[in-house]
């Protein structure tokens, strides 16, 4: 395949960026999107130009590091995959591909396609945990049976990889899907009940402090989420919030 890439280049957080065009050829369908980017970068280096900086690590859709906005969609045109799992067979010969970073006020661009998502960490620090000491003196794991249904739902919520696609997709840059996934995981488990009220209040508060927008229920986040996190979690979080404020 021969392709035309239009990529966001930005020197650092302070500079303004712009789209730059790069032709690329010899791309095969079995390549991953990031392998295509590797080829581009090696070509740029050989020409003496600076390669495109982008975040990635596991390259198997689990670490949540990769984060490209491709042809107007977070993680590109395929469903339920991260950028690193996207394959070139999703594109056609001759196509022009637009590649930008995930954009949101709470995710400032650091360089090219790299963004700062530390706001997500701070939300988790405000309450995304159960206050249990790691003493080794906890009760036997099977002393507390948990209905399979609840455990499975908690697991579904817990699969969020913290990539930020939901935020990048949302026209309000809301982080509701991300926050509700964590709140839901604990809300569904008996271990999470003790601190449930404070948790949801603190996490939602921190989300506002970080400058994420509010949720207007468009459901776009769910569509682009690579892990299929359901917006039912948002409804659950709203119920938790109600419980906590009455």
């Amino acid at each position: 395949m021969d392709l035309t890439l239009k990529i966001w280049r930005q020197k650092d957080a302070k500079s303004t960026g712009k789209m730059v065009t790069y032709p690329i050829s010899g791309i095969e369908g079995h390549m991953s999107f990031l392998e295509m980017m590797d080829i581009l970068n090696d070509e740029l280096i050989e020409k003496g130009e600076e390669p495109v900086a982008f975040d990635h690590d596991c390259r198997e859709g689990i670490c949540g590091m990769c984060s490209m906005f491709i042809n107007g969609e977070a993680h590109g045109p395929d469903r339920k995959v991260t950028t690193c799992q996207l394959h070139m067979r999703m594109f056609e010969d001759g196509e022009t591909i637009h590649i930008e970073p995930f954009r949101a006020n709470a995710f400032p661009v650091l360089k090219d396609l790299m963004i700062d998502r530390s706001s997500f960490d701070r939300i988790q620090q405000s309450g995304g945990y159960i206050s249990v000491n790691t003493s080794g003196n906890t009760q036997d794991a099977n002393a507390l049976p948990i209905p399979k249904k609840d455990a499975d739902l908690a697991m579904d919520a817990a699969t969020c990889i913290g990539c930020g696609a939901c935020v990048a997709t949302c026209k309000n840059s809301s982080a509701m899907l991300f926050v509700s996934a964590k709140v839901s995981q604990y809300a569904l488990l008996p271990q999470g009940q003790v601190e449930a009220k404070d948790r949801v209040l603190n996490m939602v508060n921190q989300m506002d402090v970080e400058g994420f927008g509010s949720c207007t229920n468009t459901g776009a986040c769910e569509v682009e989420c690579p892990k299929g996190i359901s917006i039912e979690n948002i409804a659950r979080m709203n119920r938790e919030l109600m419980k906590a404020t009455v």
């Binding site: 159960i130 249990v132 080794g136 906890t138 794991a141 049976p145 399979k148 455990a151």
Partner: peptide, 22 residues
């Protein structure tokens, strides 16, 4: 064995059987 107890206390959603046990 302690590890499993610890992780469950932290809310790690391990797979369970229909009786609700691990």
């Amino acid at each position: 064995a302690n590890i499993i107890d610890q992780c469950v206390a932290q809310g790690v959603p391990f797979a369970r059987d229909y009786g609700g046990l691990l």
